[in-house]
Design a protein around this nucleic acid. Sequence first.
DNA 1: ATTACTACTAAACGAGTAC
DNA 2: TGTACTCGTTTAGTAGTAA
Lengths: 229, 229
Amino acid sequence: MIETQSWRHLCTLLKLAEMGAHRRTAKISTEYLARKLGISQQSASRHLIELDRKGWIKRTTTHEGCLIRITEAGVAELKKLYSNMRFLMEAAYPPSVTIEGIVFSGLGEGAYYVTRDPYRRQFIEKLGFDPYPGTLNLKLVTEYDVKTRSELEGYPAIEIEGFTNESRTFGPVKCYPAIIENRVKGALISAIRSHYDASVVEIIAPVCLRKHLTLKDGHKVKVEILTTP
Amino acid sequence: MIETQSWRHLCTLLKLAEMGAHRRTAKISTEYLARKLGISQQSASRHLIELDRKGWIKRTTTHEGCLIRITEAGVAELKKLYSNMRFLMEAAYPPSVTIEGIVFSGLGEGAYYVTRDPYRRQFIEKLGFDPYPGTLNLKLVTEYDVKTRSELEGYPAIEIEGFTNESRTFGPVKCYPAIIENRVKGALISAIRSHYDASVVEIIAPVCLRKHLTLKDGHKVKVEILTTP
DNA sequence: ATTACTACTAAACGAGTAC
DNA sequence: TGTACTCGTTTAGTAGTAA
């Protein structure tokens, strides 16, 4: 989110802001800034030169110290970091989690459920794609993946309503938008079939994932689940 | 506020938090972290070791990556930075401003005003000290200092009410708690005497500043004004 | 007083590689 | 795959000092 090279400059900028330079032109000597940063006067001087070159501060050097004002661009950098942190500290759940599982073949009922029209229409409406008729089954093999998947239950999901037709009842389904193998947008769906345990997940996508990603049974697949729908 | 040496670690910690490691144990390979930070895998590895040693993260290395969880101490560091930034970005005025002025002798009326009982009782009650009978006059010589002083008008001040006695009316006074020469707590007072212009300020303190700081006319004095009373 | 240059030192980094 | 060590290189930091 923020380039590493910028960090050192961001620190200095933050300290300048603590001295009020983001609201008003502040008179700050390099020696004073250096003391506040715990570095040498020479380094502080260099930092200021670099920040100026970068356009993050506007500076006038006088024989009594520097008159420093953080520019719009500089303030924008600080705000970026701030809103980033605010999101981080105040969000109740992470923006995304990643799990890995091993491809295996189910009994093929996935296709049956996914293509039931009441489900399908909701997938199109709420997920934004018409799912390929079939699900990709993944077996979660590590304790970490199973735990991560179970934590998903606490996060907000896209709810697909259940329905009843002449012969039987189809339960509600929770969907989590996901990115499969960093490339394909799809969704993790839960509870279509309750007879699989917590160590199994099913993935749908607008395309046939097996073909599209040339997957075979036993392959390991990475799924990044987006928790902010 | 934050030691310079910590900043590099704080960056890495922040990135780990972005991956959710402040809420849950996250599986993060050094190579992945390195890519996100824009550094080498070796450096990321070293950073993790150092964060672990520092007690900011708890780590288990496996052959599939590291299981990383930010500790209480680590989260505390992030929160410290966050609240620091929040204060910075959301406050309407800086926590303190510093001005410098040259000592000069007034006509001695400062003592008269400061010792009027209705004023004096309010100084004791609202500023927490009994002012030395007399004011230190400072002439602001740079444009910067005059401008800074004028900005003070917009900040919240301690209000001393005016009063009327048998002979005349004494106007209200605004006070700003201040630290003089980094050592003595006092206050900048405004509008006791309106015939001085904006380039003059008067300082009161519980002690005689001229004696206490061995000041003479022409000496330069630094006053840090606290804007959060 | 200041700022900031040059020359040098210390620290961080990353390539190669062992495990 | 992974992590993390050594070691040469690069970068950041400091001391001295000119302006």
